[in-house]
């Protein structure tokens, strides 16, 4: 039951993901890639519980590393995307 319920969620999300992006202008390819990359940093949520409930030296080290790596992914990912899109806007304004 538990697994089936999770698969249910999975399948619906996959279909949603496939439908979500249909037409993207080529200028937005890299920012979109970068933005969705930041979302995949959601694994940080898993890392938080891993590090927070670590009970041995190995799990503490691996868990803390997981938090650090995932945070780099999230923070860096969103900032880089924002910077890219910021440039995009400025360029457009200076063009017109």
């Amino acid at each position: 039951m538990d697994a089936v319920y999770l698969f249910f969620v999975l399948i619906l999300s996959i279909f949603l993901g496939l439908e979500l992006i249909r037409k993207v202008p080529s200028t937005l390819h890299t920012p979109l890639m970068s933005g969705s990359n930041a979302i995949s940093g959601i694994t940080l949520v898993g890392a938080l519980t891993s590090a927070g409930s670590a009970d041995s030296r190995v799990t503490i080290v691996l868990g803390t590393l997981a938090v650090a790596f995932a945070t780099i992914n999230v923070v860096g990912g969103y900032l880089v995307t924002d910077r890219m899109l910021g440039m995009f806007k400025k360029k457009k304004e200076s063009d017109s």
Partner: peptide
Amino acid sequence: LIVSGALVGASGIIL
């Protein structure tokens, strides 16, 4: 994690 991961996975393939 399942929802976001699947979203990125699927939209990433499309992209």
